[in-house]
């Protein structure tokens, strides 16, 4: 067997060095407990930032609704606006209410997100689709979602009282935040003084 025939002193020195290097190296490396702790800390930090940003966005929506509506690319084409107006007239629906819902849904679920939902329908068909985020058993486009939403939720709301409007909104999405959001958008479109009136409208 092949043996090293080197002086002992050399090996002793080498041992000391390797122990030193090894200890230094180990002290630099975290142990497994540290790794796990840091992982959870990072996860909570990321989660906290995500929640903060989400809340911050909602706060902005509440406070700077004008900017949110103005700056957002509403995606409400002339064709869709015309459809809402005609369908609302046909179903005796409150056009401003329908538009407010449409704007809100479009801000919360922009076009790119709706496309994602449309593709995810390959896995599970039931879901909310189109610009009005209508619940259906199969994917539908923006136009179909407007037609279904008006027929199902907003028919005969044209001359509805404030209370009836609230019921219609809550039937669509029963959350206080959503209700306030819709009210804000309605007030953006029409002054508070004209809510519930067919005033200054085409005669």
């Amino acid at each position: 067997m092949w043996e090293l025939n080197w002086p002992d002193e050399y090996f002793k020195v080498e041992d000391k060095e390797s122990i030193f290097i090894s200890q230094t190296f180990h002290s630099l490396l975290p142990n497994i407990i540290d790794v796990v702790n840091n992982f959870w800390t990072s996860l909570f930090t990321v989660l906290a930032i995500f929640i903060y940003r989400k809340m911050d966005r909602r706060l902005n929506i509440e406070i700077k609704i004008d900017n949110v509506i103005k700056n957002s690319n509403l995606g409400l084409s002339h064709e869709l606006l015309q459809l809402i107006e005609e369908k609302s007239k046909d179903q005796n629906a409150n056009e401003i209410l329908v538009k407010a819902i449409c704007i809100a849904e479009n801000i919360e679920r922009p076009a790119w997100f709706r496309k994602f939902e449309y593709f995810s329908s390959l896995i599970a068909k039931h879901g909310s689709y189109g610009i009005m985020q209508t619940q259906t058993d199969k994917p539908i486009d923006d136009k179909a979602s407007i037609n279904i939403a008006i027929e199902k939720y907003f028919k005969n709301t044209k001359y509805a009282s404030k209370e009836e409007i609230e019921i219609a909104i809550r039937k669509y999405n029963n959350s206080d935040h959503y209700f306030r959001f819709i009210q804000e958008i309605i007030t953006f479109i029409l002054p508070q003084e004209l809510h519930g009136y067919n005033y200054l409208r085409e005669s």
Binding site: I69, K70, S72, L74, L76, H78, L81, Q82, E85, K99, I189, R201, E202, S203
Partner: peptide
């Protein structure tokens, strides 16, 4: 006019 909220900005009639 941005954003457009109406398809038309004209009333056909008004009293």
């Amino acid at each position: 006019i941005k954003p457009n909220i109406y398809s038309s900005y004209l009333f056909n009639s008004f009293t």
